[in-house]
Design a protein around this nucleic acid. Structure first.
Lengths: 134, 134
DNA sequence: AAAATAATGATAATCATTATCAGAAAGGAT
DNA sequence: ATCCTTTCTGATAATGATTATCATTATTTT
């Protein structure tokens, strides 16, 4: 049975209170300030555990090696800038999200498979980087 | 300037003639039969090069470590089975794909970013694995 | 409070991928 | 065809991200 740990609580809190999508390493460095004794393995372990519980999500970057974590589990779209590597959230109207989701669920059902999750991942050049490249 | 290599030609051909989404390692082992002298680094190098040219696509698995490669660059949806790890293609009607794509392009434009690519990634349990788990 | 179990931090091990480098192949120029 | 330059190759070392191990510590149960 799963036991409480202040490390896991801190990791979850910290992720819920930021809208960027940090890597385990980035999160670890930030958490070190609040809890200097925390180890990187603990961060990885708890991120995995929180993902399993559906409290956070893991994102695979298209252009950068390390996985990113997202404290916002409401359905939304991810936009990764190919220039700076930052991942931003994009929000479609709820009706549109549901429409797309239903199309996909239909499609999955047709192939006799069971639907679990779906996500939309977009790449491009963010506002900031578009302006830099003159 | 890019030079011809029979290794790259073989890798591209091989990917175009399969509908699964092999890892570099899997592809390497298969290619060894046709070209025993080929090296794994050459496979990785050429897969990266073909991706840059837009002749193939790279996929990040949700559940398995290694990246997968797709010789089909027509827009379609990927479905990964959380049980067996296989990735299958799902095809929406062209109109629907375009509708979704346009919604996303709209959204990206609104945030003053430049759109490059978009993909839909679905997870679930495939037909085969649903039947196995009784 | 003692026992049982799960979590931690440090670090070693693993896995996928990239970098390095000497030799081979490709594509001109002569 | 031969020389020259550039790119590519295969082997392998190096790197980076993540997971496994393990003795110790924290949490929960009895």
């Amino acid at each position: 049975m799963k036991k409480y740990s202040k490390q896991r609580e801190l990791i979850l809190d910290s992720l819920k209170n930021r809208t960027d999508h940090p890597t385990a390493e980035t999160l670890y460095r930030d958490l070190k300030h609040k809890m200097p004794e925390i180890g990187i393995a603990t961060v990885y372990r708890n991120l995995a555990s929180l993902c399993e519980d559906g409290q956070i999500n893991k994102l695979k970057s298209k252009i950068y090696g390390a996985d990113r974590y997202d404290g916002n589990v409401m359905p939304h779209i991810h936009f990764e800038c190919e220039e700076c590597g930052n991942i931003e959230d994009l929000f479609l109207k709820e009706k549109k999200i549901n429409d797309i989701d239903n199309e996909i669920k239909e499609l999955v059902k047709k192939s006799d498979a069971k639907f679990l999750t779906s996500e939309i991942f977009v790449t491009g050049i963010c506002k900031n980087c578009s302006n830099k490249i003159i």
